[in-house]
Design a protein around this nucleic acid. Structure first.
Lengths: 343, 343
DNA sequence: CTGAAAGCGCTTACAG
DNA sequence: CTGAAAGCGCTTACAG
């Protein structure tokens, strides 16, 4: 017995019941007698039948899908999304699957028109937003989403009265811990590499933490030891070259992301400096590769697994109409070899 | 004028036309008078109306969605998907968007039940499969997909009479190039780290290339210089420690993936060896971080952008009923600092 | 160029 | 526990 693209009606005919009963049986409704349900499910399996999601979704006004929007500032083709975000994809997808949701993924240029219509077009029941970007532009997009009543969860600390719910890491605390650790192991001239403009508040917060740790220890941050770099490796490399070309000595560097720190380490190496003997290096994120570079990178860990699961729990909660709170996660320091504490 | 969740009928009422005309106008049908079309589209925009994808999909039997299945062998939670595959996600998503397709992402345990029903349930029009895994298990899944007429494209070289279409890299040639390069710069005792079992033919092929280059140069591969390791960094580290603990000397290592090679480099460093002065290292994949580790990794590059676009072109072709060919891409060697050629 | 109408394949309130 | 029926919001052949 073969039907090309079977529908619930085909199953009903074969089972000798109504189409409504088939629908109930396949949804495991307790209304259907067990024997009937099992028979129907067996026939469905035999015919390789699966409920048509479009039809079910049209009827119920649900898609059981979460859209994951990743945005980045990279110009042109730029597929170089920060590995930190990329590594969240796996956790998010698995967590969503546990809740019975599919994940639709989309790359967005922050400056482009956003595909804000995911929910309006019934392709997704809610959104998760990932990315570091120009906060001014970003903020506008969030407002646009809120205006059309789109459900969304944001990765990142909640800023001011920003619309929507979020899960973020306490970046100030993270920057503080990294810097404090360098001070604790005897470093005094600590450079900072990273973008600290207000357009990128998450990264700027890491700098505030750095400043706070220094001041608390009685040191004044030296503007000459602060070099801009966005969160890409190549720019970490260049920023370090700029530091090395400058007149100031330094014995440690705090990179605003691991990718920046790894690029900086390579520049140090290429210029004949040893890490950590000459310069201690600390990063931020604990991307998967951080443990495997040479020397293994000391970094501030954000628990991406917990974050990912929280984002999914949050969006599912919003979809189901449950109360959802924004949360701030505490980062932790992971001491490896690049700082010299283990030397 | 506000309607909560407007439908095409609401637009029709406001525009004073039939719902059919609205549908045509929104799909830019040439049947609709330009003035009418523009008026309708303006109203739709004002109301923040978007075509309900479930309804459209139900009518047309299309989802305009591609499912991207990533599988890995990692036990339990293992979100440590090889960054090589993760970095393809961006290219695939963008390429799909250019064709007007959304991308549904799913992580699969190779050993689990697969969500083979993506196409049968009308959630996706076709699949793209990514991952290195146990080929025996994998092959069975491919046959199951083919049996139910699912359209799919596979990343990886075509093996024997494997069902379906694929785009892969010539791994033998890649292994040959890596090894040949090491020989060319004067290395003679070249170790190999990586899993070469028949259950993982893509990685085994890289080993064949290694063997071929050695034999062509008149050397016999030394079994003592071949250590198993799957494609994760931690195992690359351990494999190198095993090599160092052995009795054989070596002056170079070819790691079957970048992640393995990077782990091996760290083990060399931790044991007081210098890369590339004491030991040259070459990897395979050219993952994004390869250029940024210390020293920058010499590796065999697979053009993931081309591969990603090819996979998307392929699946779109299959969906549209066009002829699609399986292709084999030539890898290229990227010489950086870990091999010593630039020293 | 436009409209009336059928129908895609489900879910679920209603009736029994 | 089961069935008949309505209806979700579209697309498109048919008729004009």
């Amino acid at each position: 017995m073969k039907v090309e693209n079977p529908t619930s009606l085909d199953i009903a005919d074969l089972a000798g019941v109504s189409q409504a009963t088939v629908s109930r049986a396949l949804r495991n409704s307790p209304l259907v007698r067990e024997e009937t349900r099992e028979r129907i499910q067996r026939i469905a399996r035999d015919l390789n039948y699966f409920v048509n999601r479009n039809a079910a979704g049209l009827r119920t006004h649900q898609s059981n899908t979460i859209a994951l929007l990743m945005f980045d500032e990279t110009e042109g083709d730029g597929a170089q999304i920060n590995p930190f975000f990329l590594s969240m994809v796996g956790y998010i997808t698995r967590a969503a699957a546990r809740h019975g949701y599919d994940v639709l993924i989309s790359m967005q240029q922050l400056t482009d028109d956003w595909h804000v219509e995911y929910q309006a077009s019934n392709r997704a029941d809610g959104l998760i937003l990932l990315g570091y970007g120009d906060y001014v532009t970003y903020r506008e997009k969030l407002s646009a989403l809120a205006r059309v009543n789109t459900r969304f969860m944001i990765w990142g600390p909640r800023i001011n009265d920003q619309p929507g719910h979020s899960i973020g890491c306490d970046n100030i605390d993270g920057g503080y811990r990294a810097t404090r650790h360098l001070l604790d192991i005897g470093r005094r001239r600590i450079a900072f590499i990273g973008n600290t403009s207000q357009r990128c508040p998450e990264l700027a917060a890491r700098y505030y933490g750095y400043v706070r740790a220094l001041e608390e220890a009685g040191y004044t941050p030296d503007p000459e030891l602060k070099v801009d770099a966005n969160n890409r490796g190549k720019l970490g490399y260049r920023a370090m070259q700029q530091l090395l070309a400058g007149s100031r000595e330094f014995d440690a560097v705090f990179g605003v992301t691991d990718v920046v720190a790894i690029g900086a380490m390579r520049a140090l190496h290429d210029n004949g400096f040893r890490v950590p003997e000459d310069v201690s290096v600390v990063g931020f994120d604990d991307v998967p590769i951080a443990a495997h570079v040479t020397p293994a990178l000391t970094t501030v860990r954000q628990d991406i697994r917990l974050a990912s699961e929280g984002l999914v729990d949050g969006i599912v909660g919003l979809i189901e109409g449950k109360p959802v709170a924004s949360t701030l996660m505490a980062p932790s320091l992971v001491v490896r070899n690049s700082c010299g504490a283990n030397a």
